[in-house]
Design a protein around this nucleic acid. Structure first.
Lengths: 218, 218
DNA sequence: CCTACCGATCGGTAGG
DNA sequence: CCTACCGATCGGTAGG
């Protein structure tokens, strides 16, 4: 569909401008200029400025959730998907999840991957949700909460197993998640640190932040 | 001076609205309405909307820097101020600074204190610098760099002394600093976690993030 | 701190 | 995707 690819070009231009100047600080005409068309011509493809923001935010939320799902599924975590891996040789009644350290590492690497893959979209998702309409904001709020809850559950699990240091799971999850999201403020594609190296560094920092000092898992 | 306190009221109203809706998303008339005056009446006290933003940002930058200075000075760090503490009994030629772990803890606690003390101002400082005019943005950029450099220096020092794990000091400082700044997105005065408890939790998380696993300093 | 007002720009529509 | 245009709102000024 031609329409779909043009729509994608518009959202790409919009997300990079929203990233630079914010949603409220970007005019519809600036988005149009980046595409070399007239401001009014944009409305042949989108119904409103809010429509563009909403598409970008939803698509990015999808990407974050899919990446987290895939990362946990690759570990053989039966909680991460509706149907568990039939090749798994673990007894589902005894220990259904891999160790919390591995799960935390997987979640952090997945999150960093999504951010570095498209810094503009990730930045809009992280910063511009305040500009969403009330109902859209509420919907994204629920999805964010569920996403953060998953990280919190890993930390709580690690604490209960004694792998992680005693801390406040809510504060620890917020600390780590905001650090990961903070990447949108300083990561630059083509910079000194490549996405893979950043994922390694951030996974190590996040894991150490919650892990017991006397653990020598890595 | 009456004028100064009225000016402060205006900046308080502005920072809380900038915090909620962003600089570009807040109109001068909305700020005026919060003060129960007409939009045009604001210009008896400020010269422009940008002028309000700049005052808030400068004042908050001052607070962050002063808090960090005081925190390090209280440890007896001779680098933290122009004139060193005459009561200090440490030999300035051998080891002029306290251990990196204490310095990191002090900086984190100071930062969290500034954020929790006025979440609106801190939020504007963290999020709205993109809305500053070019020259103002450049000036704040330099001050932010210097502030972050100080944190980086502590981390590098800790690595060289062997107290901290091998990591990338730039990435580690950014990780920690963005986690601290992320507080403006979820800290709420009067919430479950009080400023003191938050400072303790965040200091522990930041310290563990960079510290060697086999260290048992705390 | 007010009323009255300014030019510029905003998001969006009509009609092709 | 264009030209032409809309009402609303923007930051800010004049003059009191």
């Amino acid at each position: 569909m031609v329409e779909t690819s043009r729509r994608r070009e518009i959202e790409d231009a919009a997300s990079s401008l929203f990233h630079e100047h914010g949603y409220a600080g970007t005019s519809v005409r600036e988005i149009a200029r980046a595409l070399d068309i007239q401001g009014a011509s944009l409305y042949a493809h989108v119904t409103s400025k809010q429509d563009m923001l909403w598409s970008i935010v939803v698509r990015t939320a999808d990407r974050f959730e899919a990446a987290a799902d895939a990362a946990l599924a690759a570990l053989g975590d039966s909680d991460s998907d509706a149907d568990s891996d039939p090749d798994s040789d673990s007894d589902p009644d005894v220990k259904r999840s891999p160790d919390p350290g591995s799960r935390l590492t997987a979640l952090v690497r997945a999150h960093v991957g999504v951010v570095t893959e498209d810094i503009g979209q990730a930045s809009v998702f992280v910063h511009e949700w305040r500009s969403l309409s009330a109902s859209h904001r509420a919907e994204i709020g629920r999805r964010r909460d569920a996403y953060e809850h998953r990280l919190r559950a890993v930390i709580r699990d690690g604490m209960e197993r004694g792998d992680f240091a005693a801390t406040d799971p809510t504060a620890a999850a917020a600390f780590i998640l905001t650090a990961l999201n903070g990447l949108v403020g300083w990561y630059r594609p083509g910079g000194r640190l490549k996405p893979g190296a950043l994922a390694d560094l951030y996974a190590a920092l996040a894991l150490r932040a919650v892990r017991h000092l006397d653990e020598v898992t890595q």
